[in-house]
Amino acid sequence: MAAKSISKRTEQKKIRILVAKPGLDGHDRGALVLCRAFRDAGMEVIYSGLLPTPEQVVRMAIDEDVDVVALSLLNGAHMTAFPRVAELLKEKGAGDIIIVGGGIIPPEDRKKLEKFGITGNFGPGTSLKEIIEHIESRVRKERR
C-alpha cells in the first residue's frame, strides 16, 4: 500500500518496465511476483517470458520503449548474462534505459554488476517495497 502512494508522488508518466530472464532459467516465481507487484504499484509491465537471449531482451526493451529493464536470474549465470544486456543496450544507443537486477547474487558480484550500471541486485528475502522504491528513485533521477 505504501508502494502505491510513493508511485503517485513520482512523475506523471507511468514507469514502463520490462521484467526479463535472460538465460536458461525456468525459475519464474520471483519474476511473476514482481510483474504483479509492479503492476499494482502503477507501472506498465512487460514480461519477456522464459528463455530469451540477452539479444532478445535488448530488442524487446527497445521495441517496447521501456524506462527500466528488471533482470532476474537464479541459475548462477548473472555475471555473464547481466553485463551482456548492459553492453548490448549501450551498443544499440539505448544506454539511458535503467537496468536493475535480482536473484541468487553473492555480495561480491553485486559490486561488479554495479560497474555495468546494474543496480539493486536484490537477493532472496528482499521486500517488494524496497525493490519498487529503488526503481522509482532511479527513474526520478533519470527524468530530472
Partner: peptide, 18 residues
C-alpha cells in the same frame, strides 16, 4: 546444469556462462 536440462551442449552459444 541448465544447458543439460534444456538440451544444449556445453559449446552451444546458449550455454555460455551456465
Amino acid at each position: 546444469d541448465m544447458p543439460t536440462l534444456y538440451g544444449y551442449d556445453a559449446d552451444s552459444e546458449r550455454a555460455e556462462g551456465e
